[in-house]
Amino acid sequence: MTAAGESVTEKELFACGHRGCAGCGEGTAVRMILNTAGPNTIISICTGCLEVMTTAYPETAWEVPIVHAAFETSAAVASGIDSALKALGKREGINVLAFGGDGGTFDIGFQALSGMLERGQNVKYFCFDNEAYMNTGIQRCSSTPYGASTTTSPSGKFSIGESKDKKPIGAIVAAHDIPYTATATIAYPKDLKKKVKKALEIEGPTFMHIFTPCPTGWRYPSELTIQLSRWAVQTGVFLLWELEGPDFRNIVINKKLPNRKPVTDYLKLQGRFRHIMKDEETLQKIQKMVDEKCEMYGV
């Protein structure tokens, strides 16, 4: 999958032939990050789709050193790597990255992430957000959006699906007073790579929240991954911004949206929202939630 207007010619450090689903947004994001970070990189990954699809022994999809320990530990293990490189006098010139899914970041790994950020470790954290526990079979987590039907927030006679809106992870992380927090999505690869490059040039912890649609979990045809990534931005469902430090008055909105698409355009492509597509009240509520968020961020 090559995004429009972007050629990928660098040496691939994320090898082809991994076991991700067709149209996997996470795989594309990882490839873009590695193309930018280059070979002098060590990565700590957590349990989840990425671990399963890339490390099945005796094969590996990684051309850079990586370690997987447990579900909640990518920031904690990366802290150990960062400190070990310092102690051994090898820190110079090596990128230490930590990768987590939304479950591993918003939920179970949140404490370890907060600790790593607060300690000011020189770790670049990347959260790949596909809005549910996909590896275990599409269970809701605190990044699942309002109205989405998952296997633990099913729609039903007394349920519209997920009953709460997404946890504002970027704002929570930025409040740790870290040097750099940003959001990105694979439909805007130049923006994504520019932000990765910026994060890597900064000393200290950085956080990037990357929106990565999942055809299996969201129930849409796999060729729509990039389109959904783009429409999430164009509807205001997922906002592209970056921020240095904790003061949200300094936020930079990378994609202003004078004419936002209606949110139903985005929702109607996905099976996880099918049950609400005739529910005008819920659709209006979701549109209002998006409008309010866009207003708050000044999009």
């Binding site: 370690v67 530990t73 904690a76 293990v77 150990g80 790597i81 070990a84």
Partner: peptide, 19 residues
């Protein structure tokens, strides 16, 4: 670290880096 769980996780990260 912020917990014993992270203490051991960081030990693992450090040890696997050769420390």
């Amino acid at each position: 670290v912020e917990s014993e769980h992270t203490a051991m996780s960081a030990c693992i990260g450090a040890s696997v880096t050769g420390a």
